[in-house]
């Protein structure tokens, strides 16, 4: 058992609890997807479980150890949604910041840190972007940089907030494939938010549907059904499967 959330409750100050009694656990090499409409608390959940926000009740455990003090995220790598940057740091500088937790307040990255950074940059395949300012990158490239930054800290759990949104078709697939490769290759756990049930179906082992009243959780193949999509996204949906060689491909058609 690697990462576990027990009885997680959270509400923003002055508001009702948005997350109620969240419980799940994830093993090494497993991917969990969180699905839900906008405003149901997907991002909030990720922030709570990584410690950026504090659970009002309950806790996140990693290998049985509680992660309750803010800032102690040593085992979790968080990849935020791609967003605007204040300063045009280069890709290499940006990825180096992933090493921050290992570097004291009065020091700068050492040669070993930078070697690690270059190694990660290479493994993600963005070596050609190394010295380009992050502000000049496309959305997909920037997402890769954030993933590289999270990986630079050698996390045991990778948490991604809608990694494939705002990307074109090809880049969505590229990111999903990369996540799968990383999780299986490094034998880490991964939790990701997504708006696309078919992406969850494609790469995740477990899926959580988050709604305003509660949530359901199960194996992706079992829980991603037409009924659940209908209920949690408030639409009608059909799941269509086709065979491509010996690969089963599913897509979801939604209508009102």
């Amino acid at each position: 058992m690697l990462i576990e959330v027990r009885n997680g409750f959270f509400g923003y100050p002055g508001q009702d609890m948005i997350l109620k009694d969240i419980n799940f656990s994830l093993k090494q090499g497993e991917i969990m997807a969180i699905l839900g409409q906008n405003g149901t608390g997907k991002t909030t959940m990720l922030k709570c479980l990584t410690g950026i926000l504090k659970w009002k009740k309950g806790q996140t455990l990693i290998n049985g150890k509680s992660l309750d003090s803010v800032g102690r995220l040593n085992e979790i790598g968080y990849v935020p949604q791609a967003h605007k940057l204040s300063f045009p740091y280069t890709v290499r500088e940006m990825v180096a910041m992933g090493r921050a937790r290992y570097i004291g307040p009065f020091s700068v990255p050492s040669k070993e840190d930078m070697e690690k950074v270059d190694e990660v940059i290479k493994s993600i395949g963005i070596e050609h972007l190394k010295n380009i300012p992050c502000t000049n990158l496309s959305g997909g490239q920037l997402q890769l940089v954030y993933i590289a930054r999270a990986l630079a800290a050698d996390p045991k759990v990778l948490v991604l907030d809608e990694p494939e949104s705002h990307l074109d078709f090809k880049n969505q697939l590229m990111i999903l494939k990369l996540i799968k490769r990383l999780v299986k290759g490094k034998n880490i756990s991964c939790i990701m938010n997504t708006h696309y049930p078919e992406h969850a179906l494609r790469i995740s082992d477990k899926t959580m549907f988050l709604g305003s009243k509660g949530y359901i959780l199960g194996k992706s193949r079992e829980v991603i059904t037409e009924e659940n999509i209908g209920e949690y996204f408030d639409i009608h949906a059909k799941i269509v499967s086709i065979k491509n060689g010996n690969e089963d491909l599913s897509t979801i058609i939604a209508f009102c």
């Binding site: 040593n74 204040s86 921050a100 937790r101 307040p105």
Partner: peptide
Amino acid sequence: LLLRWRINILSLGDEEAYSLGIN
């Protein structure tokens, strides 16, 4: 001057600093 690299981290904003393991 000694804090100079930490200021890079802070310049990303609080949330990202937390996510990088820095208070």
